[in-house]
Amino acid sequence: MTENASAAPTAGEPAPGVLYLVGTPIGHLGDLSPRARQVLGGVDRVACEDTRRSGLLLHQLGLRSRDHGPRLVPFHQHNQAARLPELLEALQAGEAVAVISDAGLPGISDPGEALVAAARALGLPVICVPGPCAVTTALVSSGLPCGRFCFEGFLPPKPAQRRRRLEELAGEERTLVLFEAPHRLLELLEDLLAVLGDRPLSVARELTKRHEEQVGPTVQAALEHFRHTPPQGECTLVLGGAPAPAPPTWEPDTLRRELQALVAGGLSGKDAARTLAERSGHSRRALYALLHQEG
C-alpha cells in the first residue's frame, strides 16, 4: 500500500481545541519527530506525569525556558479524577492541549487513556502524533513471533493476584508483552518460571540508550542474570506464548466404543459424532465415518 508522505510537519498544528497525544523519546532524544516538536512547542498546555521530568525534556529539546513555552500540568494516577474536568474545560475553551508520558506513547498504562475517553465522549477532537513505544520496540527486536501478540502491561503487584493472572494467561498462544518495575522483576521472573515454565524470553531495558540491554533467551537464563546483576530502570518483557496443543491421538477402537456408547444413550449417529468431536478435537466427519466402519 502506497501513501503520500511528507517530511515536513503538518501545517496548522497545533490547532485550537484539539487534544494531542504526543509520543516522546524512550531514551534517545533524536527519536522525537519534527511534527512532535512542532506540536509540543505550540500547545497551550502539556499534561504530563511528572512536571520536573517533562520540563527537563522540553528544555533539552529547546521547547521551554523559564519564561516561555507551554504550561506544564501534572496529570497522573493520583490526581486524575480532579484534573480531568480542568483539561476538558481548557479544550472546550479552545486551548490546544498535549498529553505526554514520562517516556514513549501516552495512553498505554497511564492516565492518558481516561482523558482520551472523556474527550471522545464530549465530541472533542483527539489526534495522536506517533512516536517511540517500548512495547513495539522491545517486541520487534526480541526475535520472538511478532505477527500476533498480547500486551498485558503491569501485572498485579501482589504475589497471589499476579500468579492468578499468570494462570489465566497460561494458555495464551500469542507472544506476551509485559512491563515491570526493577524492584519487582525478580519476583515476576520467579512466578513466570513456576507458573508458565521456562519459555523463551527477552527482558529489554534502557531501550534506545547507550547501554541498551536485552537479556534472555529464556526465563531461567534471565532469572540467573538478574540474580547476579540487579536490574535498573523499568523493564519490558517479551515472553513466548504457550506451545500449540498437540493434535489429539487417533485411537479407532477407543473412539468407536465412545461413539457406540453415545448412540446407546439415545443420540443419533450425527449427534454422537458431533458430541465426541467437541470433546476430543477430532473431525466430526471422520468420527461419523468411523462409527459406520466395521470394527
Rank of each mutant, 00 (worst) to 15 (best):
S6D: 14
A8C: 11
G17E: 06
V18S: 00
V22W: 04
G27V: 13
H28A: 15
L32A: 09
S33H: 01
R37Y: 12
A47N: 05
C48P: 06
R53K: 11
G55D: 02
G55R: 04
L57M: 12
L58S: 00
H59A: 15
R64P: 00
D67N: 15
R83K: 15
E86Q: 09
L88A: 07
L91Y: 05
L91W: 07
Q92L: 12
G94F: 11
E95W: 07
A96Q: 00
A98Q: 08
I100P: 05
S101N: 04
S101K: 09
S101W: 06
A103Q: 07
L105I: 00
P106L: 08
G112C: 01
E113P: 04
G123D: 05
L124T: 02
I127K: 11
V129Q: 06
V129P: 01
G131Y: 00
G131C: 03
C133G: 12
A134V: 04
V140Q: 10
S142C: 07
G147A: 14
F149L: 00
C150Q: 11
F151W: 09
F151I: 14
Q161V: 14
R165S: 04
A170M: 10
L176F: 08
V177W: 02
L178A: 01
H183G: 05
D191S: 07
L192T: 01
L196I: 05
P200M: 06
P200W: 10
R205A: 07
T208Q: 07
K209N: 09
H211L: 15
V215W: 04
T218A: 00
F226P: 03
Q232E: 10
L237Q: 01
V238G: 08
L239I: 08
P243F: 10
P245K: 09
P247F: 15
P247C: 11
T249C: 12
L255I: 12
R256T: 10
R257S: 11
R257P: 00
S268D: 15
R274V: 09
L276M: 07
S280I: 03
L287G: 00
A289M: 15
